[in-house]
Design a protein around this nucleic acid. Structure first.
Lengths: 344, 344
DNA sequence: TCTTGGCACTCTGAACACACGAGTGCCAGA
DNA sequence: TCTGGCACTCGTGTGTTCAGAGTGCCAAGA
């Protein structure tokens, strides 16, 4: 009946942009007349109506009732985000405030806690920050300490400031010289490397020791590898759940599944995990795999101490959100957290 | 006009109990007729009406509108909890399930995480569990390790399985014998003692060392005292916020301040802090100091590894909650967590 | 071919009236 | 002291009406 892949005309795109902007602002379906009044599109309401009909035909907008205004669909938001919106940079005072707020942090926990609060406050939505995960970070230092004749404490310090320690029960007494030797060899090879690489780099180590010491060396290494591999340390911090109350009119129905999803760390981790490292990811409504979040959008991005990202952070809000502003806030916060981590 | 301190008649108490029970079940104001039908009070609705009028006069119940049923007031719930309700013990299968679920925990974090989820699930409300706090627990072991000539790592292990470590930069190189001596002396004095006691017990230690070593000893001790005193480690874990959706009809208004309160660890800590150690505490509506929680009730109790409580846990729900059941669940969970902590 | 003004139509939401029923308070009698 | 009866109150649900916002379509103009 109609051209399928027909390219949308510039004005239609402008109309879509205007609809998204107005709807995000007012939360109410927007009609042709109001649109023309608030944006100077240079055409009459009737023309806009024609464009709207076309946009609806293509699935970018939708009418709740026959005689109501239009609401963007997920597809409409998608087009808006991809083609029509610019990330809105933070203002200078905002940037200064972010910087200042994060600078006050005393340790890693505090950095994460401050970040998540800040993000929730800036976006007025639910913020999620993943702890810098072990698997992405690099080794700063590995320490071995004899606590008792056959008991060694192993301490792993990462570039993100995270400290993990383990006790190792060795098969026999451990000489201090052996331990020092082992410590030196481990650090020479592992320092600065990414955690998952480390086991490969230490493979030939046992062979470098006397036959008698090999069981001890192997035991220590085994514990180290365990620590490195321990993925269940993927922790997450949340803030801003109170912002859910501003979600919409049809309240309990929308909010319940969202609250449930937020309690499932697994869901949140997978959500953030899908973010491609480099760029900011925006997932909208049905695009989100987890059903409970089908009426929300997720804006997420990686952050890291260097040029590489060690963890993700993001924001969860209604599909009807201020995408440019949210994306700007997320990007800015991620950038500053990265700086803070790099400094400390 | 009327007797003020007049003792309430047994039947009036029975009526109050019935009102509370019905209202908790139905969430709707309960009238005299329905009451008589559902509980065999042995009297007619008219009689019940008289009793209700008296109860209202005394402030135990309240009428939302002239021609509606009655709803218990905070004062009514208070009387119910104090005089009319028995803590409802968990059934044997429930107890077994609790036990089994908690037994699977692998470390302290996991114990707390499982506890809070369990509590949320059992009560279908919001659960709060405080981590065993350093100040209440006792020293299991303190370890000192030389990492570099003038760098010592201090590790504090508590009876609740918590491990805290700190780096100490010493004013000068530290001899291994001095360190061993210090370690031994510290542990002899501190092991088994409550954390806040420890500084007092170690006061005269520096004097027992050679003049030259005293600065080092003092530095190490200072860091240890800091670690002991660090109260901001009072962490809390939450679960079951999704249960807030079952709160009431007047939704966003009630839930918003509650969600806000739940984000403030400080508020939650103070809330739990007010619990007297020994017994279970129930705070109802306006009795709660924090305004945002004025339409909720909090049931909390201490739990601990021995006979003494090291932290608190509890449940936050609408004032209209099943007090006997909630109290039963809270008590049972606290008891089992205590056992788990004692074992590990 | 695109745009525009006009017009008839649809539908929601607010306002209002109204009846029903649940629940009450009070009183007189047992 | 309890009970049944009775008149009264008031919230809720239903039905109706009405205004307004918004649409789609069409014919005329650029």
């Amino acid at each position: 009946m109609a051209g399928e892949v027909r390219q949308l005309d510039d004005r239609k795109l402008a109309v879509l942009r205007a609809i998204v902007q107005d709807y995000v602002g007012t939360e109410e379906p927007v009609g042709s007349k109001a649109l023309v009044e608030r944006h100077n599109l240079g055409v009459s309401p009737a023309t806009v109506r024609n464009d709207m009909a076309a946009l609806e035909e293509e699935g970018y907008i939708h009418q709740p009732h026959t005689s109501a205004g239009r609401i963007p669909t997920d597809k409409g938001y998608r087009l808006f985000v991809d083609k029509l919106a610019e990330v809105k940079p933070m203002s200078a005072p905002e940037r200064r405030a972010i910087r200042h707020f994060l600078d006050g942090a005393v340790d890693l926990d505090d950095v994460v806690a401050r970040t998540v609060r800040l993000l929730a406050q800036l976006t007025r939505q639910v913020a999620v920050v993943q702890y810098p995960s072990l698997s992405r970070s690099t080794v700063r230092h590995i320490e071995l300490v004899a606590l008792a004749p056959a008991k060694v404490m192993l301490v792993l310090i990462t570039n993100t400031g995270r400290v993990e320690q383990r006790m190792v029960d060795c098969p026999g007494p451990v000489g201090e010289t052996v331990l020092a030797d082992l410590r030196a060899r481990i650090n020479t090879r592992a320092a600065g490397r990414r955690l998952p690489e480390v086991p490969g780099l230490l493979e030939e180590l046992p062979a470098m020791f006397e036959q008698a010491d090999r069981p001890t060396v192997s035991t220590v290494l085994a514990t180290l590898f365990e620590t490195l591999a321990e993925q269940n340390e993927e922790r997450i911090m949340l803030a801003g759940t109170a912002n859910l109350t501003r979600f919409g009119h049809d309240f309990p129905l929308t909010i319940q599944p969202v609250l449930e999803a937020l309690e499932e760390q697994v869901v949140l981790l997978r959500l953030l995990g899908e973010t491609t490292d480099a760029a900011m990811t925006v997932r909208i409504g049905r695009e989100i795999a987890y059903e409970g979040l089908n009426s929300t959008s997720v804006v997420s991005v990686g952050y890291g101490s260097g040029d590489e990202s060690v963890a993700k952070l993001g924001v969860i809000g209604p599909t009807r959100m201020d995408y440019p502003g949210t994306m700007g806030a997320v990007r800015a916060v991620a950038r500053y957290v990265g700086q803070i981590l790099a400094e400390s």
